[in-house]
Design a protein around this nucleic acid. Structure first.
Length: 422
DNA sequence: TCTGGGGTCCTAGGACCC
DNA sequence: TCTGGGGTCCTAGGACCC
């Protein structure tokens, strides 16, 4: 019994999503910007060919944009999330064993498919996704997840592969490992790549032949798993059930520098509400809440960063409680006289809502809160996000994100909602 | 003028306890 | 003069991912 995984990855996903609904964009360079229209997080092939780098700040590309008529979009996660679901649904018709790994990637367990013509099957997969959604995908197949990732990368790069590469034959595997730089291996980041280069390890093939002791010493047990997977020994299974999150964070940069307490409080209230919403969605409560504030690290002038964690007397997912404690925490770290760029709320100590440790002297009527939250979620779900919200969130939202190049909400009915967070 | 957001896991070191 | 050792829990920091 040999294991076999496919990794299906959408090509230039966000850029492709924008293109699906506007065919006039075909063949033209597209970039999608991060929140606040800050930096590039997705590029079409044409944009890559122009040399536009991932993470490049938008303001540095002004000339390039004008010169080559680059099409620029603010990120529209509502659209991308919806398109993602459609892609995953298409893939699920090819095997029930599917792990949605990220918004644009899925692992498929093809362990039972050794007898079929894998290349033909994957090609069919690719065509189906394309016909149903208009999104181009690449497929890599190999005995471990790490190798499937590697195969996928080559499938995308090689013209000959044309989007599908099956690596089951040891000769092909060797060739693929030799052609992959060590820094392009899943789990090997910039820091490790540099360190490995120092020790003469440059390719995935080199890393595959490093000793266990060496790898464990320099890359911990995590790195050792990577190396074993490169050798064809599976260390990671398909994860079909999504584990509950251990931490939930909501934070945003402000559209412009914020100086007043009331403005930063409005933003922090919104983030605390979002955290509470996310907790309720996964039927959990949090035992602690952290608020942080920071100035712009790229700006000249005096910098300030601070955070405050509050242990909650009883774990909760009530928006009202979260907002109240977030305000308290914020008050203790806010300092007059800074130009704030960003704030955020992190909730931790997460446990299932039905396993919350009570407190005999608890002054909060938890049942009442729960009913209120249910009503709030229902209304907001039905009538649109933030139809109902905490007053301290404010209505002006002077600090909100910059999203000047937003595309329409083609596939969902949220077109009347100006502000959408994920 | 303008530089994203949200996660995970592992390790080392300190506090504390017996 | 001499001042244990092991276990657990927590936190901060570093690495990685999309």
């Amino acid at each position: 019994m040999t294991s076999l995984f496919a990794l299906v990855d959408c090509n230039n996903f966000y850029a492709s999503c924008e293109r699906v609904f506007d065919p006039s964009l075909n063949g033209r360079p597209i970039v999608v910007l991060s929140n606040n229209d800050g930096c590039v997080i997705a590029r079409s092939n044409e944009a890559k060919a122009l040399g536009i780098a991932m993470g490049e700040p938008a303001f540095k590309m002004r000339d390039m944009i004008e010169q080559h008529d680059v099409q620029v979009f603010s990120s529209n996660y509502t659209l991308y999330g919806d398109m993602s679901k459609r892609v995953m649904n298409a893939l699920a018709t090819f095997t029930p064993s599917i792990e949605v790994y990220s918004i644009d990637e899925a692992f498929l367990d093809l362990g039972d498919f050794y007898q079929v013509d894998l290349t033909a099957y994957c090609r069919q997969m690719r065509n189906t996704v394309w016909r149903w959604t208009g999104i181009p995908v690449s497929v890599g197949v190999a005995p471990t997840k790490t190798l499937a990732k590697l195969a996928n990368r080559l499938a995308k790069k090689s013209a000959k592969a044309n989007g599908v590469l099956v690596l089951t034959d040891s000769k092909h595997l060797e060739e693929a490992l030799k052609r992959t730089e060590v820094g392009d291996v899943w789990g090997v980041g910039r820091k490790y790549a540099k360190k490995l280069a120092y020790y003469g390890i440059h390719s995935a093939w080199d890393l595959r032949h490093a000793s266990d002791a060496f790898v464990k010493k320099h890359m911990t047990v995590v790195g050792l798993r990577v190396v074993k997977e490169l050798r064809g020994e599976p260390c990671a299974d398909l994860e079909q059930t999504i584990p509950a999150k251990q931490n939930i964070c909501t934070s945003r940069s402000f559209g412009h520098p914020v100086t007043t307490f009331s403005e930063i409080q409005e933003a922090t209230t919104l983030y605390a509400s979002r955290c509470a919403e996310k907790l309720r969605k996964q039927h959990c409560c949090a035992g602690a809440l952290t608020v942080f504030v920071m100035t712009n690290p790229f700006a000249t002038g005096e910098q300030y960063y601070n955070s405050k964690t509050i242990q909650l007397p009883v774990a909760t997912n009530s928006t009202l409680e979260m907002v109240q404690y977030a305000s308290l925490a914020l008050r203790s770290i806010y300092r007059e006289g800074y130009r704030y760029k960003k704030s955020g709320v992190i909730v931790s100590g997460i446990c299932p809502a039905n396993q919350v440790q009570g407190d005999l002297l608890d002054p909060v009527d938890r049942e009442k809160h729960q009913h209120l939250m249910q009503a709030l979620d229902k209304l907001n779900q039905k009538l649109g996000r933030d139809v109902l919200f905490c007053g301290s969130q404010g209505t002006g939202k002077e600090w909100k994100l910059k999203r000047e190049k937003l595309s329409p909400y083609y596939t969902t009915r949220l077109s009347d909602v100006v502000e959408v967070f994920v």
